[in-house]
Structures are given as C-alpha cells and as structure tokens.
Amino acid sequence: MIAYKETKDFTAAELQELFLSVSWLSGNYPKRLEKAINNSDTVISAWDGEQLAGLVNALDDGEMTAYAHYLLINPKYHGMGIGRELVGRLKKKYQGYLYLILIPEDKKNVAFYEQYGFEVIEGGTPMQIKTL
C-alpha cells in the first residue's frame, strides 16, 4: 500500500535513486538535489514502505502563484495512480492561488497534465538557462 507524506525528510541516496530511475540528469547531483528539495515550499511524496516511489514539489510566492517543478514516479510504480494522487494533493494545497504552473519536460506528457485541468499557455514558450 502506498503512503503519502508532506515531508522533506529524504536522504540524498533516496532522491538520487528516484531521479535516476527516470533518467533525470539532476540525479547525478544527489547533494545538490537534496538541498533543492529541502528548499522547496511544498514536497509531497509517495512511499512503498521504506521505498520512495515518487514525489511532486512546488515553489510558491505565498499567495498567488505556485510552480510545480518535479513530478516523478519510479517506473516500477507506473500505472498505480500515484501521479494522479500527487497532482490532486498539490492542487488541493494550492487551491486558493490564482495560478499553479508547470512545464512538462516532454510534450508527450501534456496529455497527462491536461486530464487534471492544466492547459497549454497559448503563445507562451518555456525558457531556461541551463548551467549544469
């Protein structure tokens, strides 16, 4: 049974294992990743016993806008509704905000987010400065 927690109590190794399970580059920087997660305003995680199965995090301004940065599920837990549950909990946490924003890393993930009420920002273009 999957348990959900709003906590930042992770080890660098737990985070590294989760992020590398989905081949995310940030998994190669476990100490930096641990610090980044600890500095997030919100982190909701999914646990299978002692195994970190997935997480979502957000950064917010305390009133109007929250940015969901990570949503990832270890592939061995795909299809179990964990992503749906994490997104639902995040939406509930920020229900009084004007905006909950995220940028999917891959266009194939757009349909996943659309089923939970997210919309593509017409005319918008995600931008970044990549320093890794």
Results as ranks from 00 to 15, higher is better:
residue 4 Y to V: 00
residue 10 F to D: 09
residue 11 T to P: 01
residue 12 A to K: 06
residue 15 L to Q: 05
residue 15 L to A: 07
residue 19 F to R: 06
residue 21 S to P: 07
residue 21 S to M: 12
residue 21 S to N: 10
residue 23 S to W: 12
residue 23 S to M: 11
residue 23 S to E: 15
residue 23 S to P: 00
residue 28 N to H: 08
residue 28 N to K: 15
residue 28 N to T: 10
residue 29 Y to P: 00
residue 29 Y to H: 08
residue 30 P to L: 10
residue 30 P to E: 09
residue 31 K to P: 00
residue 32 R to C: 03
residue 34 E to G: 00
residue 36 A to S: 13
residue 38 N to S: 14
residue 39 N to M: 11
residue 41 D to H: 09
residue 42 T to H: 03
residue 42 T to C: 01
residue 42 T to S: 02
residue 42 T to A: 01
residue 43 V to A: 04
residue 45 S to M: 12
residue 45 S to I: 13
residue 47 W to E: 12
residue 48 D to K: 10
residue 48 D to T: 01
residue 51 Q to V: 13
residue 52 L to A: 06
residue 53 A to Y: 08
residue 55 L to M: 13
residue 57 N to P: 09
residue 57 N to K: 07
residue 57 N to E: 11
residue 58 A to C: 15
residue 59 L to V: 10
residue 60 D to V: 00
residue 62 G to R: 11
residue 64 M to W: 04
residue 70 Y to P: 01
residue 72 L to P: 00
residue 73 I to D: 07
residue 74 N to L: 01
residue 74 N to P: 01
residue 75 P to F: 11
residue 79 G to Q: 12
residue 79 G to S: 10
residue 82 I to M: 05
residue 84 R to P: 00
residue 85 E to H: 07
residue 85 E to N: 07
residue 87 V to W: 01
residue 89 R to T: 08
residue 89 R to P: 07
residue 90 L to S: 11
residue 94 Y to A: 06
residue 96 G to K: 15
residue 96 G to E: 14
residue 97 Y to L: 05
residue 100 L to H: 05
residue 102 L to C: 06
residue 104 P to G: 12
residue 104 P to Y: 04
residue 105 E to H: 04
residue 105 E to A: 13
residue 105 E to S: 09
residue 107 K to P: 11
residue 107 K to N: 14
residue 108 K to Y: 13
residue 111 A to D: 03
residue 111 A to R: 01
residue 113 Y to Q: 07
residue 114 E to D: 05
residue 116 Y to M: 15
residue 116 Y to T: 01
residue 117 G to D: 07
